[in-house]
Design a protein around this nucleic acid. Structure first.
Length: 270
DNA sequence: ACTGGCACCTGGGCGC
DNA sequence: TGCGCCCAGGTGCCAG
């Protein structure tokens, strides 16, 4: 479920409770995530100080002197801070208990998430080949133009490809393309440099606005403090099929692209 | 090297 | 109330 803004909101929510704190115990109730939780997690984490909670793409990285725990929320994962010994629900798979008497609890009904261990996360196979962060300076229209040369995939699938740019999921792909006035099915390689500038600006803008709003909530995302986000009120096209375009009143269309629902305005996007 | 399609898993909402 | 069906925000891996 969570896209980049939700992951970043979670990071900001939990960091004050977790950073510089010592791990007392790791409780793993179910190792069966996308990949089984490796024994290094419960072997290495206890006794370690969590020096920082950072984010790369949609991974939360818990840095310690022994190595880094990498947590991905998948489609339905969430983290929150609890008091020790709060009763665990059916899908509360992991608690990272701290010396403070608080714990970081990971819940993931669909179990598409993952919790892995890496000595040097930047070299990890899952992180190594990722594209730039969308909010960084090296992500811009020139970069998109360069990378898209000769590519025939739809622009929507192109910007959702983590090897090109990370953190653009299904919701914000539709939103950013609306912002840039680009039809989601247009071939990536056939978009002008100027429109690629518009697109990189639109991606940055929609992600920043969502982070400021505390992340979109469609179903069960909760911020680190347990408060739901509220960006869904500001969505222009996602989930609005048949409703009037906010710009021109044309009913919003929905198509399927790469097995994902894709929303756009057939008048505003070309 | 790209591309499209499938898979993993559970739960919620809907129509009957 | 229950059942079957469809849908869901991610992403690694496979064959062509």
């Amino acid at each position: 479920m969570p896209e980049l803004p939700e992951v970043e909101t979670s990071r900001r929510g939990i960091a004050p409770w977790v950073e510089q704190q010592v791990v007392r115990e790791v409780i793993i109730r179910d190792r069966r995530l996308r990949w089984p939780i490796p024994a290094e997690i419960d072997r290495n984490l206890p006794g370690q100080t969590i020096r920082s909670v950072s984010r790369r793409a949609k991974y939360l990285l818990f840095d310690t002197a022994a190595g880094t725990a990498m947590l991905h929320l998948g489609m339905s994962g969430s983290v929150r801070i609890i008091h020790d010994h709060e009763p665990a629900g059916k899908h509360d798979h992991v608690d990272i208990c701290l010396h403070t008497g608080k714990a970081l609890r990971f819940r993931d009904p669909r179990r598409f998430g993952s919790l892995l261990w890496a000595k040097t996360p930047a070299d990890h196979a899952l992180l190594r080949d990722l594209g730039p962060e969308p909010l960084s300076a090296d992500f811009d229209g020139d970069y998109l133009r360069r990378e898209s040369r000769g590519r025939r995939v739809s622009i929507k699938q192109f910007i959702m490809n983590a090897g090109i740019v990370v953190g653009v999921g299904n919701i914000y792909a539709s939103e950013a393309l609306f912002g840039a006035g680009i039809h989601p099915k247009r071939s990536a390689g056939r978009i002008s440099a100027g429109r690629m500038n518009d697109l990189s600006d639109a991606i940055k803008s929609v992600l920043l606005r969502a982070i400021e709003a505390g992340g979109t909530t469609l179903r069960d995302f909760h911020g680190g403090d347990g408060e739901p986000g509220y960006f869904e009120r500001e969505l222009d096209v996602y989930g609005r099929n048949g409703l009037p375009c906010r710009r021109c009143k044309t009913p919003i269309s929905v198509i399927v692209l790469g097995q994902r629902s894709t929303f756009y305005c057939r008048t505003c996007q070309r």
